[in-house]
Amino acid sequence: MPARPVVKRLPARRGLFAGFKGNVDAITIGLKYLVDPKRITLIYPNEYIKLDPGYRGFIVLEPKKCINCSSCARICPAAAMRMIRRMEEDPKTGKKKMKLWPVINYQRCIFCGYCVDVCPTEALYTVPYHDIVYENMAEMDWGLETFVKPPEYPTAKEGIPVKYIVDEEKGLVKVRAEEGEEE
């Protein structure tokens, strides 16, 4: 069943009252929405969208799982992820050893999520938010200490979490998201 082209005609606009009807229709629709606006505006700092867990937001490292393989740094299309060297003591032998750790630069990150998908041990995970403001560019270049814990999400402290639900009547309906479904 492949596609087929169908030649259509523009709807004809003839008759004395065609223009009249068009005007009446347009004004009726306008007035309908004037009476019942069906708004979908998000009043942002007071409300914020609580995104699904699958959302590709900020990326965080779980250092226990990391096997220092640098796959994430190799696949990063924006060169945001890079590996740094660190002298570390091996807990078993007590010897000092050079190890590679990923760090991320959020000046460059495009949130494509390739690094999360490519990580062979699921050591990287995404948190479902990305609206965080930094005071300067240097702060956005995360070191290893910042990278290992989820970033603070200041909007969540002030605003009400909401969710948009696809609705047949209004398109999107804003409902209050339940608290405490954090993972």
Binding site: M1, P2, A3, R4, P5, V6, V7, K8, R9, L10
Partner: peptide
């Protein structure tokens, strides 16, 4: 090639 749809042409 499997879904059914039209290509509108005016």
């Amino acid at each position: 090639d499997e879904v059914e749809f039209e290509v509108p042409v005016f």
